[in-house]
Write a protein that binds this DNA or RNA. Structure first.
Lengths: 153, 153
DNA sequence: AATGAAATTCAAGGGAT
DNA sequence: ATCCCTTGAATTTCATT
């Protein structure tokens, strides 16, 4: 694997910061911010993309605009340690699960989920427990102060 | 507040799904996927944006390309309940903190952090404890099976 | 949904460090 | 070698109809 972050200069960091803030920023806008020409910016952005520093572009969706008003962390623990532990695969089809991590803590996995309501969370937890044969411990999110911030080297 | 998700038809969902997968998809590409004309797609995308369903666009950055190989959840609890609790504000300047939620659980807040190494995490935790006068409980992430999935109604 | 004008992206060639 | 700039052509976006 190539050391992709090596040789990231201040201009590259500016470009990445700008593209995180606005993934559809035009090359002309990026040129204005950095003081470079459009084509210089273009080749730098392409280099960032091919190095994998910029892995892609995505629309930011507001979950509350869909009525998904409740989000929570759900920590899960397999109930039967003798069974093969394939919880992530068994849960992948559940759309309400936005993220799935395995962790080194008291529990085995942490899920990040979004639902409409407390009632919907109850249903989701039952679905999770039966799909993966796990115990769940939920932590409701009250307020998101900030999220998805990026910090560059 | 307007019920922004109301009247999202199958075509809108396709557009959103496509834009989440590729935030720089052109109107022509979106037109091909949906079977609509370019200008019909243009007005639909604009409507999704002005409704706030699509809140913006962003570059996806790969933290590991920067050498940020370790991520963790850090749950924090204020040590002095008599002091005003402004932990999120006191922690906002710390770049390694990618997200900050207040939660209804045993602890008050959960942070999502990224660092280079276990050593760097040690330093970050000390910084968090002194900046916000809190106790910390960390859960190291071993593997990210999936994240940032979006589920549409 | 189609059209034409403006803006943007792209590839090629040349010059400076 | 690498980085940057200019130019002209192809593509994309945008406003009007």
């Amino acid at each position: 694997m190539t050391d992709s972050a090596e040789g990231l200069d201040e201009i590259d960091r500016t470009l990445v910061r700008e593209l995180v803030a606005d993934g559809r920023a035009t090359l002309a806008e990026l040129a204005a911010v950095t003081g470079l020409s459009v084509s210089a910016v273009q080749s730098r952005v392409r280099r960032l993309e091919s190095r994998g520093v910029v892995a892609g572009y995505s629309a930011r969706v507001d979950p509350e605009a869909f009525g998904h008003m409740l989000s929570a962390f759900v920590a899960i623990t397999p109930l039967d340690p003798s069974q093969p532990d394939d919880a992530p695969a068994r849960l992948e089809h559940i759309a309400e699960i936005e993220a799935c991590f395995s962790v080194a803590g008291e529990e085995s996995y942490i899920l990040f989920v979004r639902v409409e309501s407390p009632r919907a969370l109850e249903g989701l937890l039952q679905q999770i427990r039966t799909a993966a044969n796990v115990r769940t411990r939920s932590t409701i999110i009250l307020n998101t102060f900030y999220s998805d911030r990026v910090h560059l080297p």
